[in-house]
């Protein structure tokens, strides 16, 4: 399996933590001080999960969704900014990413609960930060204004002092939106995954074009190319 498992990721985080926070003393926040981060009021989910032996062919989400319409609206707008439409796929906000995020943070499992404690306050923070800057909430702000809020936290090397927690929220939101998006049919078409189709006969292997590309790369690396075909 090539998927980097959560266990491995945690080990890496542990290994990296020695260096991660050596960023030096924080400068005074530009643009005034950031909106406070409030994670006090996120009630945990206590409903049961789908159990050890669910029906694999009739999958269903048994837990109730918990986000309100305003939170879902923030998510849709955020998804539009995060993954805008282009020639290869529609925008994140036009796909049910808000529903996916709601399903995710409403699930009764530890990882999802941990994300819940980041995402729910994060959505409130987007409103607060927009409000502090503009006197409007995130939904009522203009596209450019929403970008200005995103810009404070979206770029790993440019996170302003005092914005560390919102930046952590943003990174997680981005990760979840990427996963939510590229697992949907539109995202799968965009990324060019061509499998999950039963084939008859032997597995055909790489196309001539893929082999030619590989061989060109091997030559550049000073490695021996394969005979085509």
């Amino acid at each position: 399996m090539t998927e980097i498992s959560r266990r491995v990721t945690l080990a890496w985080i542990a290994a990296a933590s020695a260096s991660a926070f050596a960023a030096g003393p924080s400068k005074a926040a530009q643009n005034g001080s950031p909106s406070p981060w409030n994670d006090a009021a996120v009630p945990p989910i206590t409903v049961p999960g789908y159990g050890h032996d669910p029906d694999l062919k009739a999958a269903a989400v048994p837990w109730p969704l918990t986000l309100n319409p305003h939170q879902r609206a923030i998510l849709r707008l955020a998804a539009d900014l995060m993954l805008p439409a282009d020639a290869r796929s529609p925008s994140g906000g036009s796909l049910p990413l808000d529903a996916f995020l709601d399903e995710w943070i409403s699930a009764p499992y530890p990882q999802q609960q941990q994300d819940r404690a980041l995402i729910v306050p994060g959505l409130a923070w987007l409103d607060e930060e927009a409000g502090r800057r503009l006197g409007l909430d995130f939904v009522s702000a203009s596209d450019a204004q929403r970008r200005a809020v995103f810009d404070t936290v979206a770029f790993r090397d440019k996170v302003l002092p005092g914005y560390e927690q919102p930046a952590q929220f943003f990174a997680r939101l981005r990760g979840l939106m990427l996963a939510g998006f590229y697992t949907l049919p539109e995202g799968i078409a965009d990324i060019g995954y061509l499998g999950n189709t039963p084939l008859s006969g032997d597995y055909p292997g790489p196309t001539p074009e893929a082999m030619a590309n590989l061989n060109a790369s091997l030559i550049k690396l000073g490695l021996k190319p394969f005979s085509p075909g």
């Binding site: 900014l81 805008p84 981005r174 990760g175 990427l178 996963a179």
Partner: peptide, 20 residues
Amino acid sequence: MPGARFGLAGAEDGYGLSLK
């Protein structure tokens, strides 16, 4: 097949068209 851990090997940054 993209799954819930779909990601960019830790290189995720920013947002918008560049992310796609």
